[in-house]
Design a protein around this nucleic acid. Sequence first.
RNA 1: GUGACUAUGGUGUAAUGGCAGCACUAGAGAUUGUGGUUCUCUCAGCGCGGGUUCGACUCCCGUUAGUCACCCCA
Length: 404
Amino acid sequence: MKTYNAPKGTRDIAGEEAARFSRVSRIFEESARLYGYGLINTPIFEDTALFERTIGGASDIVQKQMYTFLDKADRSLTLRPEGTAPVARAAIAGGLLRPLPCRLYYSGAMFRYEKPQKDRKRQFFQVGAEYFGDKSAFADLEVISLCSTVLKKLGLDCELKLNSIGCSKCRSGYEKKLTAFAEKKIDGLCDDCGERLRVNPLRILDCKVESCKKILAEAPDVSEALCPECADNFGQIKQGLRDRKIRFNEDVKLVRGLDYYNGCVFEFYAQGARDAVAAGGRYDGLVKLLGGEDVPAAGFAIGVDRVMPLIDFSADKPDYMLVSAGAPMDALAAFADEIRDAGKVCVISSKPKLKNALKEASAASFRFALIMGEDEIKNMTVSVRDMEKGEQKTLSRKEFLERL
RNA sequence: GUGACUAUGGUGUAAUGGCAGCACUAGAGAUUGUGGUUCUCUCAGCGCGGGUUCGACUCCCGUUAGUCACCCCA
């Protein structure tokens, strides 16, 4: 019989992984809620143009990583490769940006057509938060704090890398300077950098080739090219982080791959992890670009798949397995419901023989087996067997339920 | 997208080109209502397609999938 695997670059998440997954989502959602963020669910696919315009036509994502298809009416649709543009789009469309500020969080699958490898699947999961309507450092600080809090609650010790790539004004000035610098040294730079210089000069700062790194070490700094406003804003963010005791390292070479970013950008690196587990920044131009008013914004996303294997996790053992020793199933079912009403996990073993039922309970690591047989039915009792200690005692069902 | 490596029951692993074994798991059982230790039995496999050969799990080519690096990114 032919069987089917999950499609290339996707995977099934079950068992312990699933438990990790929901733990990460739960902790994120809890924190976002406590910060006053509201959940927003956007479609899994959008008009292709939404991503082409916002992410940047020159970016790798748009150039070769989008899952784009035509629907039956020849509309060009794309499986979302990231969450920010859809959230911005939805916030505009849904009139959510009227009383500003507006705080939203999301959680879900994203898609990028890449060659799968460690920590890089074609379908991956992100949780993220977006803050609309505040131009000041306050917003940057809030989203960085939220992100940092979540990672901390997950037990991760992360390094925060921080940079400012400036507003549209100082950025274009800087890009000119950088381009001029790089063109002089073009012979020493790799081919990719030549290409980057043409399409998105900032990205050459990100080059991993040693010879390029050496040359670019002398490149002009963004920090020196910032306009007074941007420099002041960035200074406030850094001071705010110090006040909040959030450690960070300024990295003047940090740029982001998506075109809509400006101002402060950041990435969180977990210990030992090569890639960022979370990243974000400010994107003041995005809402306007999508036809909304001129609403400044900042946000971040956490890579759930990347965080999952890093968290310290031990699965909870299920509580009770009800096993029959000749008791009718009806009696078991009613009692099981009473236990569930008390909020405890209770599973009824389908094995008719006590021996096999106990075997099942121990194989599935239940903490207790609840034995019900003729004696227990007659006396309204239950025999509670501790599967680890091997101790067993019989008590009245009423007493048992009270102790839950 | 480029490059390298890998592919055998559900899992982990063997077999100079000559009958595919082993361990774990799972299922059934070892006289009455007591499991996680023992014993017996059972189920289950060469990713797919070509080629070389008397004969291919083994060699060659292709393909698919996985892993790793590059690229890029959460």
